[in-house]
Design a protein around this nucleic acid. Structure first.
Length: 648
RNA sequence: CGCGGGAUGGAGCAGUUGGUAGCUCGUCGGGCUCAUAACCCGAAGGUUGCCGGUUCAAGUCCGGCUCCCGCAACCA
C-alpha cells in the first residue's frame, strides 16, 4: 500500500430512464458516509457519482415523449443532481457519459483495444424481431416467437465488435484468489468465481440497432455497448488520458460500491478491461443488498416507488440518511416501510440521542448557568463511561473500514445509550441538592458533554448536519470543518467553559397516528372499481359524459374453463361464454385465484377492449376486479343473470 | 430443473474460524424526574422451517424436503 493518503470511491453511474428511488439513495448515501469518514481521517478523497445516459432504452423513452434523447436526459439529470444536493451528498465530481471528456476517453480506449487486437470484428448471431428492432437469445423467445410482440423472429447474423474477455479470465481468477478482499461480500465473490469458472465468453461491445451512444471511432455504423461506455467513467473522471498527474494520483480506486445486481459487470468485465489497458485493478468491488419495499412488490398501480425527496422534506436529511445506512446488514437485503423509518427515528434519534443532548443541556443550564464545567476526578462509573467511549470509537472505525455501515451506527449508538445510563447512575438531580457535591456534579456534567462530543463526531459521516445543529446548543466545536475523526478517540477534548443554550429538539418525536391521517391524503389509492363515485372534482374535465361511458361494452360472462398460463406466475387463461359467443381472456390474477375458484362463475367483462397478445395467447377483453395494495377480488354476479347481459 | 436471497422468541434483524442463542422495537412489572409522555432496571417469550448425516459438541458443516421473496417474462 502506498503511503499517500488518497481515497477514491465511486457509486455506479445511474441510468436516468426513470426517477431514482430509495435504493439509489442508499448506495449514494453509504458511499457518502465513507467519503466523509475518510475526509475526517485526513484523506484526500475523490468521491464520484454520475449518470449513464446512453442506450436503447433511453432513446426509446425519449422518443415516446417526443424529445431528443439528450434533452430528455438533461431534465432527469437535473433532478438527480438536486436529489443528491438535498441528501447532502458530498461528491467531488458528477460525470455524465454524454460529456465530451468521456466520449473521447471511450473512443480512445476502444481504438486502443482494437489496435492491440483485444477488440475484433466478428458475427453476432441472434434471433431478430424486425418490428421491435431487437435481438433475443434463444432462451428469451416465447414459443419460438418474439417475447415482446409475439411475431415471427428470424435468425440473423450481424457484424459486431467483440472484446476478448476470455483471454483475461485466468488472470482475473488468479487476482481474485490472491486478493480475497477484492470482491465483497464473500457470497458475491463465490458467485463471481463460479461464474468465471463456468466459462467466460467474448463480450459483444457494439450495437447497430440503435444510435444513441458513442460511435465506434472507425466505423460509425456501430455504437459502443453501454456497459463498455459506462464503466470507463471511473477513469474519465479522474483524468485518464487527459490529466496524467491527476489520474496517477487517484487510481486505482479504493472502493466501487454498488447494489448486488451489477457486481458481474464490475467484477468481471471491468477488471478485464483494466487488464487490457494495463492498469491496476481497484482495491474493492463491494456489493450491498437491496431495499425491499413494504410487502415486497413494487408496481406501477401501487405507485409505491418511494421518493427520497419527500422523505427528506418530511423527516430531515439526517434522519433519512441514518435510517438508510442503519437498515441494511452488510451484503444482505433489507426492507423499507415508513413505519419502520419513523420508529427508528423515534427510538434511536429522538429518544436516545436527541433526548440525551436535551437533558444534558438542560442540566448544565440549570446547575451551572449554562457553562460547561471543568472535569474532576474520575470514579468507577466515569471510568466505565470513558472505556465505552474508547471502545465505541474503535469499533465504529473498524466497521466503517470494512464498509459495515449498519454495524458502524449500531456501535456508535452504544455510547449514546451508555451516557443515558450514566445519568441514571450518577443522579445529578440529587447531587444538585447539596452544595458539597458541586464538584462531583461538575465532573458528571463534563463527562456527559464529552460523551456527546465523541458521539457527534462518530455520527457525523452519516448525519452531515447533526454536528452543526447540535453545536448551536453546545458550542463545543469552534470550527466544525476542522474536526478530525481521531478526536473521537480521545477523552477530554471538550472545552470547559463553553456556553450551552437550550433550543428546539434536534429530532422531534414523530407522532405515528397523526402522520397516518395526514399521509392518507397525498397518497391516492388506486382502485379499479370504486364503490361510490368520487367526490365532485373542481373542474369540468374531471367528469365524463354518459356517452363516454357508453363506449365501454361491459358484459356478463360465464367462466367455462380456466387454466394457468404455463410458465407464468400471474396469468390465468379464461374461456368465457358471452351470450352465444365464446372468448379467451388472459388475466393477471393467478396470485389470487385458482382456476377452480372461477369455473362456473359469472364475471364482468370489458368486451370491446382492443385484443392483445399476452405471453403468446390472444386476450379478447378484460375482466374487472377490485384491487387494493395486497388483495384483489374479481367482480362476480350473485344472481342468475344470463351471460351476455349488458352492464350499465 | 432460468438466476439469486431468505426461513432464529409478537415484529424487524445479529450470530465471525462449530463449544451455554443475542440486539432493537413491542408486552408486563419496577425505578427515576434532569429530559423530546422521554431515560434506567428487571421479567416473560425461541425444541434456531422440516428430515437425515458428520462430530464429544451444529443456528453455524453436508445431503434431501417444504414454504416465502426478489430479478427475469407476461398484471389489458
Amino acid at each position: 500500500m502506498q503511503e499517500k493518503k488518497v481515497f477514491y470511491i465511486t457509486t455506479p453511474i445511474y441510468y436516468p430512464s426513470d426517477n431514482l428511488h430509495i435504493g439509489h439513495a442508499y448506495t449514494t448515501v453509504a458511499a457518502d458516509c465513507m467519503a466523509r469518514f475518510k475526509r475526517m481521517q485526513g484523506y484526500e478523497v475523490f468521491y464520484l457519482t454520475g449518470t449513464d445516459e446512453h442506450g436503447q432504452k433511453i432513446e426509446k423513452t425519449a422518443r415516446e415523449k417526443g424529445l431528443e434523447p439528450l434533452g430528455y436526459v438533461d431534465g432527469i439529470v437535473k433532478g438527480i443532481r438536486e436529489l443528491w444536493d438535498t441528501m447532502m451528498i458530498s461528491n467531488n465530481d458528477f460525470i455524465r457519459t454524454t460529456e465530451s471528456r468521456h466520449k473521447e476517453v471511450v473512443q480512445k480506449v476502444f481504438q486502443r483495444l482494437f489496435d492491440q487486437g483485444d477488440i475484433f470484428l466478428s458475427q453476432y448471431e441472434g434471433w431478430y424481431c424486425t418490428p421491435c428492432e431487437t435481438f433475443f437469445t434463444e432462451r428469451q423467445l416465447v414459443e419460438g416467437k418474439c417475447p415482446d410482440c409475439g411475431r415471427e423472429v428470424e435468425l440473423l447474423k450481424e457484424e459486431s465488435y467483440f472484446f476478448d474477455m476470455a483471454k483475461y479470465a485466468p488472470r482475473l481468477l488468479e487476482h481474485i484468489n490472491t486478493h480475497p478482499d477484492f470482491i465483497q461480500p464473500e457470497s458475491r465473490r463465490n458467485e463471481i468465481v463460479n461464474f468465471i469458472k463456468s466459462g467466460v465468453e467474448d463480450l459483444c461491445v457494439s450495437r447497430t440497432t440503435f444510435n444513441w451512444g458513442i460511435k465506434v471511432p472507425f466505423n460509425n455504423k456501430h455504437v459502443i455497448y453501454v456497459w463498455f461506455d459506462a464503466l470507463l467513467n471511473y477513469l474519465t473522471a479522474i483524468g485518464y488520458l487527459s490529466d496524467d498527474d491527476k489520474f496517477k494520483h487517484y487510481w486505482p480506486a479504493n472502493v466501487h460500491l454498488m447494489a448486488k445486481d451489477i457486481v458481474r459487470f464490475h467484477a468481471i468485465i471491468w477488471p478485464a478491461l483494466l487488464m487490457a489497458l494495463d492498469l491496476p485493478l481497484p482495491q474493492k468491488v463491494c456489493a450491498h443488498g437491496w431495499i425491499m419495499l413494504e410487502g415486497g412488490k413494487m408496481s406501477k398501480s401501487k405507485g409505491n416507488v418511494v421518493d427520497p425527496r419527500i422523505l427528506v422534506e418530511k423527516y430531515g436529511v439526517d434522519a433519512v440518511r441514518y435510517y438508510l445506512v442503519k437498515e441494511l446488514t452488510f451484503g444482505q437485503d433489507g426492507s423499507y416501510s415508513e413505519d419502520m423509518l419513523v420508529s427508528r427515528i423515534n427510538s434511536d434519534l429522538a429518544n436516545d440521542l436527541g433526548n440525551l443532548i436535551s437533558r444534558t443541556v438542560a442540566m448544565i443550564g440549570r446547575y451551572f448557568a449554562g457553562i460547561i464545567p471543568a472535569s474532576g476526578t474520575a470514579v468507577a462509573v466515569d471510568q466505565d463511561l470513558m472505556h465505552t467511549a474508547a471502545q465505541v470509537y474503535q469499533e465504529a472505525t473498524e466497521k466503517l473500514e470494512k464498509l459495515d455501515f449498519a454495524g458502524y451506527l449500531i456501535s456508535s449508538l452504544k455510547l449514546v445509550s451508555r451516557a443515558n445510563k450514566y445519568i441514571d447512575e450518577t443522579e445529578p438531580w440529587l447531587l444538585a441538592k447539596d452544595e458539597q457535591n458541586t464538584e462531583r456534579l461538575a465532573a458528571v456534567m463534563y463527562n456527559l458533554a464529552e460523551s456527546i462530543r465523541v458521539a457527534l463526531i462518530l455520527l457525523s459521516p452519516a448525519m452531515p448536519t447533526l454536528m452543526e445543529r447540535a453545536n448551536r446548543q453546545l458550542g463545543i466545536f469552534s470550527d466544525i470543518k476542522m474536526v478530525n475523526w481521531d478526536e473521537a478517540g480521545q477523552w477530554g477534548l471538550c472545552p470547559a467553559g463553553s456556553q450551552v443554550k437550550k433550543a428546539e429538539a434536534l429530532f422531534p418525536r414523530i407522532d405515528l397516528k397523526a402522520l397516518e391521517n395526514s399521509a392518507a391524503v397525498p397518497e391516492p389509492k388506486e382502485a379499479v372499481v370504486k364503490p361510490e363515485p368520487p367526490a365532485p372534482a373542481k373542474g369540468e374535465d374531471e367528469f365524463i359524459t354518459i356517452e363516454d361511458f357508453a363506449r365501454m361494452d361491459l358484459r356478463i360472462a360465464e367462466v367455462l374453463a380456466c387454466e394457468k398460463m404455463p410458465k407464468a406466475d400471474k396469468l390465468l387463461i379464461l374461456r368465457l361464454k358471452v351470450g352465444e359467443e365464446e372468448r379467451t381472456v388472459v388475466s393477471g390474477i393467478a396470485k389470487h385465484y385458482t382456476p377452480e375458484d372461477l369455473i362456473g362463475k359469472k364475471v364482468v367483462l370489458l368486451a370491446n377492449l382492443k385484443p392483445t397478445k399476452l405471453r403468446g395467447v390472444m386476450s379478447q377483453g378484460m375482466i374487472l376486479a377490485a384491487s387494493g395494495d395486497e388483495e384483489l377480488e374479481v367482480l362476480m354476479i350473485d344472481r342468475d343473470i344470463p351471460s351476455g347481459s349488458r352492464v350499465k
